[in-house]
């Protein structure tokens, strides 16, 4: 009796389910691997790190399970707070330079003929085929005393002796701008490539000079690309410790360097975890403010395939 009843009911129940739950199940199953992956490789380490940040440093490599806010209190010490503000300043400076160089680059790349576009794109990608560390050592040769730059400057008589540019702030900025420029160029390019030329023509036709047409039409419509480029530049430039390490010596200390130092030298994993949590919180706040700003500016808050 029971089974017969349920068999009768089943088809009736099935119909709405086919449109609702069944398809939902289908999508759930198809994205399940993605969920598992995220859980295992993103969420779990994050939780681990978060919990770790409340513990204390133990013996030589160990960790003690006494939970407290000590690590976070320690961050408010001027030395560490200074590192944070220093990092933000450097990140802002790098982002500014990257935007100033990368925007025109990406914008004009989109205006090239398809053949030239391909060639320039290749030039952007080729450096990624070698290790980024390798390329940084290239900068060392360029900047170091009596290196390429010094030779060139002394050659044309601009300077007398070596400039000692290596291990200086400008060297770090240069290295970072160099490393992050392609991301900006590419995301601006992606935006500019979609820009409908007839809109620019319409604006010229309605009386706008070339400059006016750029600022009233091209620029607002490529802003999403610029915005996502800024996100792609700002966040990594807070943590690119190896660039600061290699080109800045010990003169430029970023949050990234601090974390690395705590991990590798001081073996204070909990403090490193607390620093990382703060860095993440900082970037999240930045992203949040940023999406607010872009929404206010009317580009819908979407960050061109980001966030």
């Amino acid at each position: 009796m029971e089974s017969r009843k349920s068999a009768k009911k089943a088809p009736q129940k099935d119909k709405p389910a086919r449109n609702g739950k069944l398809t939902l199940c289908g999508t759930t199953f198809s994205v399940l691997p993605l969920y598992l992956f995220t859980l295992a490789f993103v969420l779990a380490p994050l939780i681990y790190m978060f919990v770790l940040s409340f513990m204390q440093r133990g013996g030589s490599w160990g960790v003690e399970m006494s939970l407290s806010f000590d690590n976070y209190l320690r961050i408010t010490e001027p030395v560490y707070l200074g590192t944070f503000t220093e990092s933000i300043k450097l990140a802002l400076l790098c982002t500014l330079f990257v935007a100033l160089l990368g925007y025109p680059f990406g914008y004009f790349m989109a205006r090239l003929s398809p053949l030239w576009r391909q060639r320039v794109m290749l030039l952007l990608i080729v450096p990624f085929w070698t290790s980024s560390l390798m390329r940084l050592y290239g900068w060392i040769i360029f900047f170091r005393a009596n290196g390429t730059l010094d030779h060139a400057l002394m050659g044309i008589g601009l300077t007398q002796g070596p400039l000692r540019l290596l291990y200086s702030y400008p060297a770090v900025v240069t290295g970072m701008v160099y490393a992050l420029l392609p991301f900006m160029a590419y995301s601006v390019y992606a935006s500019a490539e979609k820009l409908d030329r007839s809109l620019v023509e319409a604006s010229r036709n309605l009386g706008a000079s070339a400059l006016r047409a750029f600022f009233s039409v091209s620029f607002p419509l490529t802003m999403p690309g610029l915005f996502s480029g800024i996100v792609l530049t700002f966040i990594p430039s807070m943590g690119l410790f190896f660039i600061a390490d290699i080109l800045g010596g010990s003169k430029v200390v970023l949050v990234g360097n601090l974390i690395q130092e705590q991990l590798m030298r001081a073996h204070d994993w909990p403090f490193a975890a607390a620093l990382s949590v703060c860095l993440m919180a900082l970037t999240s706040i930045f992203l949040f403010l940023y999406s607010r700003l872009t929404r206010a500016l009317g580009s819908g808050g979407e960050l061109e395939g980001l966030v």
């Binding site: 007839s198 809109l199 319409a202 010229r204 036709n205 309605l206 009386g207 070339a210 580009s299």
Partner: peptide, 20 residues
């Protein structure tokens, strides 16, 4: 003369309205 000095507006086939 450049287009902005001609004062002869055009209605484009795809309308070319500014989306922003």
């Amino acid at each position: 003369k450049p287009p902005n000095e001609r004062n002869i507006p055009m209605v484009f086939q795809n309308y070319a309205l500014f989306p922003h």
